[in-house]
């Protein structure tokens, strides 16, 4: 299965990566090379095989649903490219 230009543009949109016109073809070629490479998995019989999502076999631990830290707003926002009064600032969303 190989991708076309429209699909590449749609993936770029889903991934929120601006892809200028002159980058579409090289990206298309690279993605098709990679997809062509992974295609060989289709020859593996995986009928009835449970997908592996945890290699350790440990179950994820539960903890009490309680606040464990907090009061560090200044630390949380310290690296924001733009902020206002202790908040993150983004371009205007609602006119």
């Amino acid at each position: 299965m190989s991708l076309d230009k429209a699909t590449v543009a749609s993936i770029a949109n889903l991934a929120r990566i601006k892809l200028p016109e002159d980058r579409v073809d090289p990206m298309l070629k690279d993605l098709n090379t990679i997809l062509g490479f992974v295609e060989q998995l289709s020859e593996v019989d995986t009928d009835g095989v449970e997908p592996l999502s945890s290699v350790t076999g440990h179950s994820l631990p539960l903890r009490e649903d309680a606040v464990t830290d907090g009061g560090i707003q200044d630390k949380v926002t310290a690296n924001a490219p733009d902020g206002f009064a202790g908040f993150f600032a983004v371009p205007k969303v609602v006119e």
Binding site: T7, I11, L14, A15, I34, S42, V44, T46, P51, L52
Partner: peptide, 27 residues
């Protein structure tokens, strides 16, 4: 490239063919 490939293999309609399949082979 990797973010794009990852986005594609997780997107609606392709998840089972790629991601789930890969996790099965991983098993």
């Amino acid at each position: 490239r990797r973010v794009m490939i990852g986005t594609y293999v997780l997107s609606a309609g392709y998840y089972d063919a790629y991601y789930r399949k890969a996790q099965q082979v991983r098993a």
